[in-house]
Design a protein around this nucleic acid. Structure first.
Lengths: 250, 250
DNA sequence: TCCTGAAGTTGATCTGCATCAAGGCGGATG
DNA sequence: CATCCGCCTTGATGCAGATCAACTTCAGGA
């Protein structure tokens, strides 16, 4: 089992916890919120820590509060494929299954809002729109996974990198600037070159080369290794191979 | 819109329809079943017909009764990636979304049990375990999609082919022979070489070559182009790159 | 201050799969 | 029966990305 510390903090109420808004109780009544309050607790992890190993017993479900975590699968000989990126408000774990299917790792410092599985399942049984909300989120994840399948199966290295940068940029834009972005966009890469490679089905050398190429071609600018500026989002999207009408900020 | 014919047949009751068992109403009360009966109808398609195009309005959700359908995504320049294979009892469509995200194509003759979306959503709102059942199924699909991401991102062509054959063999075995398989296993490939290629992120030539290679190495036998015999399932699984303890018949 | 190690870059070379091309096979159709 | 066409196989060649290797950058620690 991974090391972690619990920070059950009654003072830190669900107002800080995105599960309220996205995962569970968008339409909850006050007494249902109360039930959620009673079974929830927080866990925090340091960057690089493993939250849970594939196959471990997982007696909770959780929602990311702050930080970034990854889901990865590993083959016996060490080949790794990232199968999901967990951002604040994303949900981990599945009701009805007690063991984890993937390695979950904190790539940055991470705080999660956890619910013990048993009481959560009971709450779900008695509160219909929790299951509906989870269904909606899971369908979104399934769509994202299928888009990723297209990327992994059919896109070139350059298209893969451009797609990843576009995804990170889109998320970052919607977090920081609710209004439409017109000019340049600057953000920090939350992943190492190797993590990007594991996400994209490439090697870290190819990732590095393609980033250099995009920089050489003026599609992106780099400040240090991690800080990226995108002068024109349209020019970046042209490199992704996706339909032009991609709905960048919808 | 694709051509189809409706076969609203009051005589053909839900007993023939896998949605009863897997998708919707495993624990339904009689009156809920009655509601489902009222809003359901059947559609059938011929092999090769497109059920729905990506972006089309989709005013129903459905469950496959017999036959096989595929979900594919296509890039502007024609690169294609299959993102799902729909077998009997699998579910298509998502409550809360009115347009299709993928092309759905019948690869064999196909019968689907459809429910108009609006009444289905109303039923879902009033019947909690329908949402729970759908959630469970969607989580299974998500797991399958993530396993496929590992295949697409990290497996070699030979491993991809072996994995696909293993998946088809497993499904076929569980349909035909509930008891454990000990000896050889024979089945027909439901996909053309090109469809396999689109599923695996390869070209049809590579698919053909790798199948020939597996045959040459005695992992499989071929009778004609489509009929496959697997003398030893373990020897096939050795070629997939997956953990040995894969739980072939669980 | 230097040392150390993790992260990243870049070059040279190799190779697995794509691409291009030429048939083969089997079933439908006149 | 011949012909045609979709599906498949096999060979020759090319290239994108993997692999192997050397070097740079930078942050942290003694």
């Amino acid at each position: 089992m991974s090391v972690h510390r619990d920070i059950r903090s009654p003072s830190q109420h669900c107002g800080d916890c995105p599960i309220r808004h996205r995962a569970v109780c968008a339409r909850c009544e006050a007494d249902e919120l109360e039930l959620l309050e009673q079974i929830k607790y927080y866990r925090s992890y340091e960057a690089g820590q493993t939250v849970i190993w594939s196959g471990d017993k997982m007696d909770f479900v959780a929602s990311v509060v702050t930080g970034i975590a990854t889901l990865t699968q590993t083959m016996e000989d060490g080949r790794r494929q990232m199968v999901g990126l967990l951002l604040p408000s994303d949900f981990v774990g599945r009701p009805g299954r007690s063991s984890a299917a993937y390695d979950v790792t904190a790539t940055t410092d991470l705080v999660m809002c956890c619910f013990r599985r048993k009481p959560f399942e009971e709450l779900m049984a008695s509160t219909p729109h929790i299951a509906q909300r989870l269904l909606e989120m899971t369908l979104d994840e399934l769509d994202a996974a299928r888009e990723w399948m297209l990327l992994l199966g059919r896109k070139t290295a350059r298209e893969k990198i451009a797609s990843l940068l576009a995804i990170i940029a889109r998320r970052d834009a919607s977090l920081k600037e609710p209004r439409a972005q017109t000019g340049a966009l600057t953000f920090d890469l939350p992943l190492t070159r190797e993590e990007m490679a594991d996400y994209l089905g490439l090697t870290l050398e190819t990732v590095s080369r393609q980033i250099s190429a995009l920089k050489r071609d003026g599609i992106i600018q780099l400040d240090g290794k991690r800080q990226v500026t995108i002068p024109s989002i349209d020019r970046l999207l042209d490199q992704t191979g996706d339909d032009s009408d991609g709905g960048f900020l919808d």
